[in-house]
């Protein structure tokens, strides 16, 4: 007869091996040692997709973030060839997905700021043309609470009047090409603060003066209030001006011309 605790141990081992089951070639252990990785793998990527940890995907963020409402993060996947899209997520955030972007002419990277509810790995998964997801990331420690606090904007009629207003500027880069930084007035409410529904920017498209696409961004709730984005444009796609358009989850349009 099998003793009950031996049975329990066996089923636990079985459960663990099931949770960690993944397609061939995906045998590396999570370099960030997050107990939630296997669930991220299952929830965010198709079961048959190839997902590998890859240091070529760089995520820059402070090891200790003093303000959980405004944690700066920069992603750079330029060391990989042919990046088609990048998904940024934080394993231990109540809303894990932060932003998804598809560089259609822009440099395969993005700077932005996020709300973190607690210390968590912050990762970027870059999909290359062959369909493989390359995952890089870093731990960010924080005191927490970033996702369940109301935005400053949700309480202010003045901010509502300026909803969707875009400030921007273009710089020439020493390395060649240009840099665009833009800030959009939006509360980016997560829906996790009592009585304040989720209200956040979803699609955002950056194009050149002729309307040719440079970057598609899909935002999720954890982007910080009044989000600021940094996008680099390679010299070959530098333009006389740029345009940005998008909307939030309530259908409010965002549209602005970015002049030099």
């Amino acid at each position: 007869m099998i003793k009950p605790h031996a049975l329990a141990a066996a089923s636990l081992m079985l459960a663990c091996s099931l949770a960690l089951a993944a397609p061939k070639g995906e045998t590396q252990n999570d370099p960030l040692g997050s107990h939630n990785w296997s669930y991220m793998r299952k929830d965010l990527f198709p079961a048959n997709a190839r997902v590998v940890f890859d240091e070529r995907v760089k995520v820059s963020a402070p090891l200790t973030a003093e303000n959980p409402m405004n944690v700066p993060v920069s992603v750079d996947a330029a060391a990989l060839p042919g990046v088609t899209e990048v998904l940024v997520f934080a394993d231990l955030n109540p809303i894990a997905r932060i932003v998804r972007f598809a560089p259609t002419g822009a440099h395969p990277g993005l700077g932005f700021r996020i709300k973190l509810q607690q210390s968590s790995p912050v990762r970027a998964a870059a999909r290359t043309a062959d369909g493989t997801w390359h995952v890089g990331g870093t731990w960010v420690n924080t005191t927490g609470g970033g996702c369940t606090l109301p935005s400053a904007g949700s309480a202010s009629p003045e901010w509502q009047k300026r909803l969707g207003e875009v400030s921007s500027r273009v710089w020439e880069r020493k390395e060649g090409g240009e840099r665009i930084r833009l800030r959009i007035i939006h509360p980016e409410d997560t829906g996790l603060a009592a009585g304040i529904p989720a209200f956040y920017i979803q699609p955002l498209d950056l194009a050149d003066a002729q309307g040719k696409p440079l970057m598609h961004i899909e935002g999720f709730e954890p982007l910080s209030e009044n989000p600021v984005f940094t996008v680099d444009i390679p010299a070959a796609r530098a333009s006389t001006g740029y345009q940005v358009s998008g909307r939030d989850n309530n259908g409010n349009a965002i549209s602005a011309t970015i002049e030099k």
Binding site: E66, N67, P72, R169, V170, R183, A256, T257
Partner: peptide, 27 residues
């Protein structure tokens, strides 16, 4: 090092806003 990081978090957004407002204009 720690105070510099905290100061960037606390103060940089205001400098950034100023730098972006110069040429930024709403639609």
């Amino acid at each position: 090092e720690a105070e510099y990081r905290r100061s960037v978090g606390q103060l940089f957004p205001a400098y950034e806003l100023k730098a972006l407002s110069r040429s930024g204009r709403p639609a």
